[in-house]
Design a protein around this nucleic acid. Structure first.
Lengths: 394, 394
DNA sequence: TATAATAATTTTAATAAATAAAGCAAATGG
DNA sequence: CCATTTGCTTTATTTATTAAAATTATTATA
């Protein structure tokens, strides 16, 4: 007995299966005939592959049908309750762990505080019992956890699995987070920075569900960006693609922690705004003052919006997305200005694309990062279904 | 006899063949054993696929060998003389048609002037005899032309094959250039704007031959960008990806033709420099004045370099390339400042990536666009060898 | 100079997953 | 109730791969 392992055919099969799964997700509900048309595969192949997906429990048949004469189409849907995903958002001063179904809907969520804790191991010690409890919950419901998605405040070196130097996130630099988590929890671990997970939350569960090119801009203690092009996350040659907070907005301006001068982040982030207004105050205080009509605050607010307008125009011209999504801790304060931002940016774009760009608010509010962490795993599942279900390689 | 057309397997084969071809090109010269290691395919498969590539004439065996004991490795090389590519650079006031071998080396080149001609058909009438003559040359040498690559000064709508509205290029808007050229010359036609073809020239024949992520910045009458990520050209959702001339460098600055204000292009392009220095003059005049130490010109020159420095830093932070290549009609005047530009930009980057970024001069000077047009076809060949060789579909 | 050792490549049989086409199942309408 | 239509499944065929054995080319050594 020879044991052949023809990977090439399995790759084709996986690819076709992934294609089918993604089309099912994109259309919510779709019949086999439509899959034949959309994928270009033959009906026999569709039968085989959907059968296998049915067996894994990733999809189910839904009674629906259509047409006037002839046999009715059996609609196929993604089965969102058979497996679960755990999302972990590690922030600078807090964390959130969520158990979610495949549609990104939260089943359970736990938040915690990490103020003052600088040692990554200690943070994980805090997170561990909650995470284990979610794992148990999932096991009780017979909906196995297929992976752990993690959102962190700064980029990670893909080669070493170690964290790079995110500003305002001391203690974590060089920490081998991927292997640590895999060892601790025995799960398939996927990690990305918060801007990117946020972008993925939109790509799979939010505004970008059908959009192939989107940019997520997160404004908070820093300003970050996540770019999805042709449906795929873009990370760049050093993992620094989309550092949108570090575009030079004010030549000759303040020196930024990144080394550049006049970065948007130096004026547009929460610390940036406070530095421009009155050091030592809080962002709540600032927006309170704006509401009360304090002239200096109002002036500073107008500048902030103007910087945002300039930055978004620049980013449209560099990334050409279908959607720009705005989020982050600062954004809730700006939501009321969305339509103004929208019209001001569009006024500065090429006329013929003005109505093709959408500028929107993030879909998942304070849980954007956690949902994004879940989306990170979901994306892996939809790109490599069988492999992802198989779990961590030994 | 049934005539089955199993496309999926052919796709796998094409993909593997393309993979082999690209590795041969990347390594200049490579043996089958090394291909086995690099591709993960088995030796039998490599034998089959390389045999087919030998038959098409795309590669050849080169006597070389290595090792001390055992059968010697037969090195494989891309055969650059069996097929040719025609590149056409359509500029605002001139054109260049070149016949090149597969390595992008020019066999023959013709330039012409189109000043004052606004009708695209008339321009093509001027180009046609030269192009036909190159085709005849190629046929005489029994090295068939596999395709016509075209470089144009502005983006094209991929869906309609019509030109969008490139500034300073009147008469061409809405012209269905792709179909017109295919009809006229019966060749496989590939079209991209000049910044993108320039980027491709570097990707396949120049500095990016091994780099997977590069940015080409072309400075001339406008400022444009071409981005290659993971070896592939990125075009964006509207074909406007990489409009790097339209990043906002000076908030509150001059209104640009694109609708934005303070665009780098408004101050950094040839017209931008002249507007800032003294309207009505020429760029030669400007640099003459700089050399003569004219204070206003020197001041303007310093600003220009500073804007460039700011823009490149911004672009590094947005695209995270391995290489930034500088070119365009303006750039020759700036070449002497390259090392200064380099060090000033690097001083503004994250320290840990400072020695990973390379900033270089364009490789092909005045013929960058034409070589890029050739590279556009070469890239198609290396991505889909058999299909590209098969020529235009009926 | 033959022969053993070694390494590169080719050949051969087996295999997986697709295609093409025929067959089966389910629904409607005269 | 049967013909028609449409959707899905089954079956035989095809293809490019894998694994493993065979062949070829080269060097080292007796």
């Amino acid at each position: 007995m020879t044991t052949l392992k023809p990977v090439y055919l399995q790759k084709v099969k996986q690819q076709n299966m992934a294609d089918i799964l993604q089309k099912i997700w994109e259309h919510e509900s779709i019949s086999r005939v439509e899959l034949v048309e959309l994928t270009g595969l033959t009906s026999g192949t569709i039968t085989n592959l959907t059968q296998e997906l049915l067996q894994t429990g990733l999809i189910r048949e839904s009674e629906t049908s259509s047409g006037s004469v002839g046999r009715k189409r059996v609609m196929l849907k993604l089965r969102t309750d058979r497996y679960t995903i755990i999302g972990l958002d590690i922030g600078r001063t807090s964390f959130e762990v969520v158990l979610a179904d495949l549609a990104g809907r939260m089943i359970k969520s736990v938040e915690g505080n990490t103020v003052g804790i600088r040692d990554p191991e200690q943070v994980l010690d805090l997170v561990a019992p909650h995470l284990e409890s979610l794992k148990t919950d999932a096991a009780d419901k017979k909906s196995p956890v297929i992976g752990l998605g993690v959102s962190i405040p700064g980029p990670m070196d893909k080669k070493t699995g170690k964290l790079l130097s995110p500003p305002n996130f001391p203690g974590w630099e060089g920490y081998p987070i991927q292997s640590a988590l895999e060892r601790r929890f025995g799960l398939n671990v996927f990690i990305e920075d918060d801007a990117r997970t946020s972008a993925l939350a939109e790509r799979w569960y939010g505004l970008g569900r059908k959009a192939q090119d989107l940019l997520f801009v997160t404004m908070g203690m820093g300003i970050g960006g996540g770019v999805v092009a042709k449906g795929e996350l873009v990370v760049g040659s050093n993992g620094l693609y989309g550092q949108v907070g570090h575009i030079t907005l004010l030549p000759g301006g303040e020196i930024c922690a990144c080394g550049n001068e006049g970065c948007w982040e130096t004026v547009g982030s929460i610390p940036g705004i406070l530095r421009r207004w009155s050091e030592g105050n809080t962002i709540d205080g600032f927006f309170q003052a704006v509401r009360e009509g304090d002239p200096a605050a109002v002036q500073c607010m107008q500048e902030t919006l103007y910087y945002l307008e300039c930055a978004l125009t620049t980013l449209f011209n560099t990334y050409d997305p279908e959607v720009i999504v705005l989020g982050g801790k600062l954004y809730p304060y700006l939501t009321m200005h969305l339509s103004e931002i929208r019209s001001r940016v569009k006024a500065r774009m090429y006329a013929f694309v003005r109505d093709r760009l959408h500028i929107e608010s993030a879909t998942f509010g304070a849980s954007q990062n956690a949902v994004g962490a879940v989306a990170l795993v979901f994306g892996a599942l939809l790109n490599e279904p069988l492999q992802t279900l198989a779990g961590p390689k030994t």
